[in-house]
Simulated assay, not measured.
Amino acid sequence: MRKRITSLVLMAFALTTSSCLSTEEKKKKAEEEGNALIAIKSKLIKGAGEALKSDGKDAVETATEGVGEIIKGVNSGFDKSINQANIEADSVFLKTFSLGRLSKDFSSSDSVKARKVSVYLIAEKAFDGKVKLKAFDASGMEIGRSVLKVKIDEDDSRYFDFEFDKRTPLLQAHRFVINLK
């Protein structure tokens, strides 16, 4: 039994020493494998560069369009959430005007004596008189009002700035009611 173990150990030793690479051979093999990997990666990079040359412009244009749409969405969301509010008008008012965009200026500087709400009015017929704009919070409580002298020709349109007291919390205005005075 002992002879058998000894011969197995000798055979294993002989196999391992005969199949082992020298240090030089190991270095050379590792270098060859490394060069092969570098060649493959450089071909991939070269291919990516050529693809960017031909398709890069289209990719950048598409990405830029996407960013543009995001910015439009942000602006639209801002208008809907902060700057815009519902505006209601009675039938008498609507016989004279159509309503366009409404925007609030809610700056709170002490140097500002009034805050304003700009309303785009489209005249269905000529008008020379006063228009009243009331601001209401979400609970329906009036939080401010402004009266403005308006003179406009038929089929004309423009923004009119209704000034509110600087203490009017326009940021809280949920809806506005506009009518002829």
Rank of each mutant, 00 (worst) to 15 (best):
L15P: 03
T16F: 12
C20W: 04
K26S: 10
K28V: 13
K28L: 12
A30Y: 10
E31W: 03
E32K: 06
E33H: 01
G34N: 10
G34C: 12
N35L: 07
I38G: 04
I40D: 12
S42M: 13
K43W: 07
L44V: 12
A48P: 03
E50D: 09
E50T: 08
A51R: 15
L52T: 07
L52C: 07
G56V: 01
A59F: 10
A59D: 05
A59E: 05
V60N: 03
T64F: 04
E65K: 11
G68S: 11
E69M: 14
I71S: 00
G73I: 11
V74T: 01
F78R: 00
A85G: 09
A85S: 11
N86C: 07
I87T: 02
V92E: 14
V92I: 11
L94K: 15
L94A: 14
L94C: 07
K95L: 11
F97G: 06
G100D: 09
G100K: 00
G100P: 03
L102W: 10
S103W: 03
D105N: 12
S108E: 03
V112K: 08
K113E: 14
A114T: 11
A114K: 13
R115G: 00
K116R: 12
V117H: 06
V117I: 05
V117Y: 02
V119M: 06
I122L: 12
I122H: 07
A123H: 01
E124S: 12
E124H: 11
K130V: 09
V131Y: 05
V131K: 00
L133T: 02
K134S: 15
A135R: 07
F136H: 04
D137M: 03
G140I: 08
E142T: 07
E142N: 04
R145V: 02
S146T: 06
V147D: 08
V147C: 08
L148W: 05
